[in-house]
Design a protein around this nucleic acid. Structure first.
Lengths: 137, 137
DNA sequence: AACGGTCTCATACTAAAGTACCAATTTCAT
DNA sequence: ATGAAATTGGTACTTTAGTATGAGACCGTT
């Protein structure tokens, strides 16, 4: 995040410098008008591409999760937490430790998640959850 | 695809027209140099953003799988196939049926995949594979 | 021809996942 | 406050998953 700010700051400076440079070049007559304009066009085109790329990457990574879908399915808060842990690749025992409950409890939650997502295995549940856009990434 | 070509053609024409227009404007002295340059900069910046967006949209949907990563990890062709099936949520038995081999064979492949991805469970393997960009979406 | 790698399959385990039922608490809205 | 839903937990059991080990068959390379 700090990196982004830094890059944008430097970019802004570069743009200003470029504008100044081209104005002076034109006035002093070192370069033709067409050449300068073409240069400007190319540089700003590249900058546009670059910035869009940067934004897109961050937008895609933090893909929206469909909260309406979650309670349309009927997943409770706790069950959803367990689903997230499952999707992260943790075992029932590990999930139990993370959430400070017993493994039995996790098994109950997992079974409920499988029922509600109509899945036979946790891997299938994860896949279905992904298709329903209720999982990050 | 035909649409894309059309858009690009019209864009190229627009760019040329813009360049011509600004040259004439400058020569005839209707506009100041700074104004024209700024205008050009803004327009081309927007064009850059637009084009990048167009390309990205198509690229993101079918997110690239990093084939180099696959053999950097040392996954064989068959092992990767099994990994894909795992990620789709299938059981070993189902994968065996899909690939026309025995469940024993699948177990062997799965074990190898887990080893190579340094995972303890298939869900963890899937998660890691996702982070390594070797899985579609 | 010999070798390494891959793919195949089997047996015999251990470990984890998942099911079925039951039950006590807690939470929360009507 | 009362009832419904959610959370927690347990036992007992079945089913998958995963490990370890060994081995035969195939393929391409040197």
């Amino acid at each position: 995040m700090k990196k982004t700010v830094l890059i944008f700051g430097m970019l802004a400076l570069a743009i200003l410098a470029l504008l100044q440079l081209s104005s002076y070049s034109l006035i002093s007559g070192d370069l033709t008008i067409e050449f300068v304009i073409s240069g400007i066009a190319i540089v700003f085109f590249i900058i546009g591409v670059f910035i869009q790329k940067k934004f897109k990457k961050e937008a895609v990574v933090s893909q929206e999760i469909d909260r309406e879908q979650i309670d349309a399915i009927g997943l409770s808060k706790r069950e959803y937490e367990v689903l997230l842990e499952m999707a992260s690749g943790y075992s029932n025992k590990e999930i139990a430790e993370h959430l400070f409950v017993s493994e039995s409890t996790i098994k109950t939650h997992v079974s409920n998640v499988l029922l509600k997502l109509d899945a036979k295995r946790r891997t299938q549940a994860i896949q279905k959850a992904k298709e329903l856009h209720i999982l990050p990434i």
